[in-house]
Design a binder for these strands. Structure first.
Lengths: 175, 175, 175, 175
DNA sequence: CATGAATGAGTGTTCATTCAT
DNA sequence: AATGAATGAACACTCATTCAT
């Protein structure tokens, strides 16, 4: 529901109808609507961390480009699978502090993992700036892909992942 | 109000109280709440186009870096000034077709202007991919800056603009 | 406006726009919206009384049928010209006592005039019942004619007046 | 509520207070205010048709007058019970096409049933005109009875039904 | 005498949440 | 454990009326 309609436009009634259950049951398992979001966010964070965990130790290797493309593809796929949740994170519609922090921490974790794999000798500040730019590209592209046709010329997640992955590899991780 | 609370959480009552006026007056000037958003979006689009118009003809020049930093700073400032509107654009909370298209077209316009200034000989597809990445960085950074503390280490728009501007110049426009 | 949209659906703004004047001017001449209705009602009552005044002394004469048809036609025309006002009377949307009474008294006046012309010897109660039925036919037909197509087969006021007038004459006034 | 205050002046809050329930419950059972009217209109139409169904095959019989009086009494009673709904029909305050048509068709149905029972040989046009007049009397009288004191001398529905019924029988159905 | 911008009480509708069964 | 009818606070929008100019 959140992926299709977004968090705010998804009514509890929509959710329970989709789940073939009732309002009462919903509130038996979740304290409130945002609590459901928190639960989904938790799953989403785990999957995103798994994506980061799938990164090889180094990306400045012969098959670094393929690995980068694979990583980007996995990131995009996970993002798409949880777009409703992640958007709710970003859009600030969430009141719960913990859930908000979870989002930030998850992306920070990925950023840290990527930063470790940045080759060359640069100052910590420069490294952080580069990885911030990298994360921005990843997030924004994923966001755009889960919106409607905001990327002219992009005709699917695969193409986007390949293009973006190569770009990222060349710009950030190539030896 | 939109910058502080976001479009959906801003009630008409909040808006008119802030503007020291009444509901009736509000609906005298705007057909409905979304109409206000459309009006603000129009202003915002004009300002964003002005930012693009402020770009020098070329950025691969001795003072190209300064110009890039200035452009990024102007972009971030404008984005911040209209964050509520732009977020409403992105978050899909807008029903009106025209307003939605305005957002896409405005960002496409900026992208086109930047693409023209990309130096070197690359295929159109490659140029488009690069500029898409560039726009992603710009947007995501601006978005992050107008959210809460999403950029660890960032301590202000100026620093962010300088850092990001230099990065952008080196990565995309340097000769 | 009242004829076209009805009293309640006519907004003061509609009225003043039609009259090419302003809200301020409206309230200069009328205390409120209902006050305008009262003024129009007064005119309408005068016209309806004039229609009654146009009745010949007797209707059970050789040219009684023509006179009855003429009366019915005049009644329908006046009703149509003031349909909005009369409907507001009937529909009970008027708060003002005087205006309400004016409506009742006007129709009572017409009823009395018609009762005088009823031929034959009947008890007062019977005469009143007959004239009540007559008035009902007149009013309901007029009401229907000013609504949309409630009278199947009727194709205009003239036809309606002729048909109804003859019917009325034969049923109530013929010698 | 509709009978007492009329459709438009009845607020949803009035309705739910009277029904000892809440706004939420109201919108659980009816899509909106007009939807309630439609539901009531449906019941009303059924009852009016039942009144027509209660007519004997012929009215030009020895006990035709009693049957006519009974029919008129039933019509008036049903009309009174649903005055608010029927008035909303007539007053054009209903937007829904189906509901509007329901009103017209219901009264047309009754008119057709009455037309069948008109004795004597007359042209179809004449028969239709007569039945239109008859319906006008019925409707207008019922309308008047459910308004305030519009019928001078009338002191109750029974008296009105008897008087009107006899009049109708003599004028339209007597052998 | 005329204006029209400003007002705010009033109204229909939505939806997260509760609780008796 | 599961249900779903019931709730009511919240919100966008309307329009008759006022009054400073």
């Amino acid at each position: 529901m959140f992926n299709r309609r977004g968090y705010h436009r998804s009514r509890v009634e929509d959710i329970v109808r989709e789940a073939r259950t009732s309002h009462g049951t919903f509130y038996l398992y979740f304290g409130n609507k945002e609590d459901l979001l928190a639960a989904l966010a938790s799953e989403c964070a785990a999957e995103l961390r798994a994506v980061a965990a799938g990164l090889p130790a180094r990306l400045d290797t012969p098959d670094g480009e393929a690995a980068t493309v694979a990583f980007v593809a996995a990131f995009l796929a996970t993002y798409r699978a949880h777009a409703g949740v992640i958007r709710a994170w970003m859009e600030g519609g969430v009141t719960d502090r913990d859930t908000n922090r979870l989002g930030v921490r998850t992306f920070t974790h990925i950023a840290t993992e990527l930063e470790r794999r940045l080759p060359g000798r640069r100052s910590p500040a420069a490294r952080r700036a580069r990885v911030a730019a990298l994360m921005a590209m990843l997030e924004r592209s994923a966001y755009a892909l889960t919106s409607r046709d905001l990327v002219p010329g992009g005709d699917g997640d695969r193409v986007a992942a390949t293009t973006l992955g190569r770009l990222v590899h060349r710009g950030f991780f190539a030896a």
